[in-house]
Simulated scan of single mutants.
Amino acid sequence: MPCPDLYRRVMATDLLVRPLSPADLPSVLDIERQGYSYPWSEAVFLDCFKDSYRLWAVCHGEFLAGYAVVAYMVDEAHLLNICTHPQVRGKGIGRQLLRHLLSAASREGMSKLLLEVRASNEAAIGLYEVEGFREIGRRPGYYPAASGREDARVMALGLGR
C-alpha cells in the first residue's frame, strides 16, 4: 500500500505511463473500490487482457496512481474505465493518462475515441471538454445509482488520422 506522504508529493511530471499487467490488479482493485460506488470486479479486469484492449498504468515510482482500460474496435477506441487514486486527484494525473491513451490510439490507427461518463460527474466532464471531447448522445439509465439509475453522457473526440 502506498505511503500517504508520497501522494502529497506526486506531480504529473514525476509519472510514468506503462502497460498495466495482471500483477497490478491488487492496486487497481483498491483504487477502483475507492473511486466508484459500483466497482468492476477482478474478473472483469482479467477479461480485458486481450489483444483488442489497451490497459494503462500511471505510476509514481513503484506505486500505481491510476489506470485506464480502452477497447479497440475496428478503427474506434472506447475508453471503458479510467480512475486515479483519490489522494492524487486534481494533480493532472488523469489528464496525463488520458493524453497518453489518446496518443497511443492515434498512433495505432484509431479514428476516434468514445466514452461514457456519469451525467453527474462534473469534474470528469470538464476534463473531457477541455481536452476536446464533445457530447454526441446520452444513454438513459446507463449507470447504477443509489436512487435507481443514472444517465451517461456519450462523448467523442476525433483523433485526426
Rank of each mutant, 00 (worst) to 15 (best):
K91E: 13
G94W: 01
F49P: 14
T13A: 14
R134Q: 15
V58H: 01
P86F: 02
H60A: 09
P39L: 02
L64G: 05
H85C: 08
L114A: 00
L114I: 10
R138V: 11
V28W: 06
S120M: 05
A146D: 11
C48T: 05
D24N: 08
M11H: 12
V117H: 10
L15K: 11
D5P: 09
E135T: 14
T13C: 04
A77R: 03
I93T: 08
R118T: 02
S111H: 02
A43S: 15
I31F: 07
L127I: 11
L115M: 09
L102K: 08
L97W: 11
E129G: 00
D24S: 08
N121D: 03
T84P: 00
S27Q: 15
P86A: 05
E122K: 13
A145T: 12
R95N: 05
E131W: 09
A119L: 09
L159H: 03
F63V: 14
L16M: 14
R8T: 12
R153F: 05
Y72S: 12
G158R: 07
R153V: 14
S41E: 06
L64A: 05
L16R: 15
L159I: 07
A152W: 01
E131A: 13
L16W: 04
P39E: 05
R139K: 07
Q34L: 13
Y67N: 00
I93M: 11
V117N: 08
E76P: 07
R149M: 10
M1W: 09
A57Q: 05
L98H: 07
A77N: 06
P2Y: 07
P2G: 11
Y72C: 13
I136G: 03
Y128N: 11
R118W: 06
A57D: 04
R134M: 12
D75Q: 07
V44E: 09
L101T: 10
P19R: 08
S37D: 11
M110Q: 13
P2M: 12
E42V: 04
D5Y: 02
L127T: 09
E122G: 08
S52R: 14
L113G: 00
Q34R: 13
